[in-house]
Every structure is written in C-alpha cells, then in structure tokens.
C-alpha cells in the first residue's frame, strides 16, 4: 500500500516536471500553421524540423555571444576565486574574516539596487554595449560565490601541508602552484559549472548592458517570445537551444552541479 502511494506520488511529480518539456518538443516540431491552442497536445503530423533550423539561424550569433561570455567569464572568475580562496583560507590576516563577510554580502544584493550606477560606470569606462563589459560585470559579481567555494574547499586542505612546503622554502605562489593547485580540480569543476550555468542563464545585466550585436541568447529569446504574432514553434525551438548547454552540463556533470548548488546555500 505504502509502495503504491510512493510510486504514484513519484509518477505524478515526474509528470509535473516533464510535461512542460514534452509540450515544448511537440510545439517545436509542428508546422507553424498547425499550431492551434486546442490541439497543442496532439503529436505533430508531419514532424517538422524546420523550426530548429530557422531558430538556429536566428540565434547563432547570440549563441556564440553567450558561449564567449560564459566561457571567458567563468575562466576568469575561477582564477580569481582560487587565489582569493587560497589567501583567505591559508593566509588569513587581521580583519580578513570581516572583509570576507562584507564580500559575501555582494552575493545577495538585488542587482536592481546597483543597476543605474553600474550602467553609468560601464558607460564611463567605454565598455557599454560590448561583451567585455558584460564579462567584467559577471566576473566582479561572481567574486563572492567563487571565493566562498574555494575558501571552503581550501579550508579542508591540512595546514600542515602548507607549513611543510613553507619550511622547504616555498613562497606564496610556490605553495599555491605546487601544493594547493594540484589538489584543486574538484573545486574548479564545481566553480566552473556553477558560474557557467549562472552566466549563461543571466538576463538582467544582459538586457541592460548590451546592444544587439553583443546580446546573449537569453535576451534574444525573451525578445523573440515577447514579440508579436511570432508563432510558438520558434520560441519553443529557441528555448530548447538556449537551454541545451546548461542541460548538457547538468546531465553529464550533475554530481558537481549539485555540489555547486549546495555551496550556493552558504553552508559555512
């Protein structure tokens, strides 16, 4: 009895989570003229792949923008985070804990509260509308979370290891390169996945700070779907395209993805 209840609950939940995806697929595979509201759940006849081609044509430059943006910002912020985490975990100084807490606050601020000055600043340094401006912004606002993840990770490395290397005459960077870095792969993976998904999926900065040539795919999707009389096959195909990279990351690297999630909840 209990088992039946358990499985029907799980089945119901599965439906809740998967039905939307099923509908997206159905719609994306239909001829635009055949998409009508009352037959949305009907299997496409014939199956029509053209929408993906059209959506890909339209989204390719934006997709590239997103890729460049997410990859470079992720790489940069992982590097910054590793160094910061190393300093805070292994070279703490007076007040470093307080500075760390002040830094962490940056993770929680609603970006609306800095949007106007940010906008003016990016404009003033001449990066408005460029992908570089957006990369800079993502790296900076990523500092708190990446520092947190690396700091927590490096705290687990025994201080004795660092101490031993120091006695052997290694300096700050020597220890980092030869002792800490070789142990860091899991932290890098966690940070990379976390930052990649966050940046790929981000919208507010993207919509305020870019111009059409440098738009990431989320902005393009929102504008396509928000536009008028676009048939729904395109937004749905576009949504799948926009979701694909992060979904792949999730499916293949799910374990690390989860770890990033848990780290994101500040389990100090």
């Amino acid at each position: 009895m209990g088992r039946i209840l358990l499985y029907s609950l799980l089945l119901l939940a599965t439906l809740f989570f998967l039905l939307p995806v099923y509908l997206v697929l159905l719609t994306a595979l239909k001829e635009p003229a055949k998409i009508t509201l009352d037959t949305v759940w009907r299997w496409p006849d014939p199956v029509y792949w053209e929408s993906f081609k059209v959506a890909w044509e339209a989204f390719r430059p934006k997709f590239q923008n997103s890729a460049v943006l997410a990859l470079s910002a992720t790489a940069l912020s992982a590097l910054v985070g590793a160094l910061n985490g190393y300093v805070l975990a292994k070279w703490p100084f007076r007040g470093s804990n307080l500075l760390f807490a002040l830094m962490l606050f940056g993770m929680f601020i609603p970006y609306q509260s800095i949007l106007i000055p940010l906008f003016q600043f990016v404009k003033a340094i001449g990066l408005y509308g460029t992908l570089w401006g957006l990369i800079l912004v993502h790296v900076v606002y990523g500092i708190p979370i990446v520092t947190l993840i690396f700091k927590n990770y490096y705290s687990e490395i025994p201080d004795e290891l660092v101490e031993a290397a120091r006695i052997d005459g290694a300096g700050f960077f020597g220890i980092f390169r030869h002792v800490v870095l070789p142990l860091s792969a899991p932290a890098f993976v966690v940070v990379a996945i976390w930052q990649f998904t966050q940046i790929w999926n981000e919208f507010l900065f993207a919509v305020t700070l870019t111009r059409p040539e440098s738009q990431p795919i989320t902005v393009a999707l929102a504008q396509l779907a928000g536009g008028e009389a676009v048939k729904w096959n395109l937004p749905m195909a576009g949504a799948l395209l926009a979701a694909l990279p992060t979904l792949l990351v999730y499916i293949f690297l799910g374990r690390y993805f989860l770890r990033g999630l848990l780290a994101g909840s500040v389990k100090g």
Binding site: L23, T197, N201, T218, L221, A225, M236, A242, L247, V249
Partner: peptide, 10 residues
C-alpha cells in the same frame, strides 16, 4: 539548470 527566461517562455 534552466534559465528563468527559458522557464518563463515555456
């Protein structure tokens, strides 16, 4: 793993 924009569109 999805963007809120994707979720919203769907």
């Amino acid at each position: 793993a999805l963007s809120f924009v994707v979720t919203g569109t769907i």
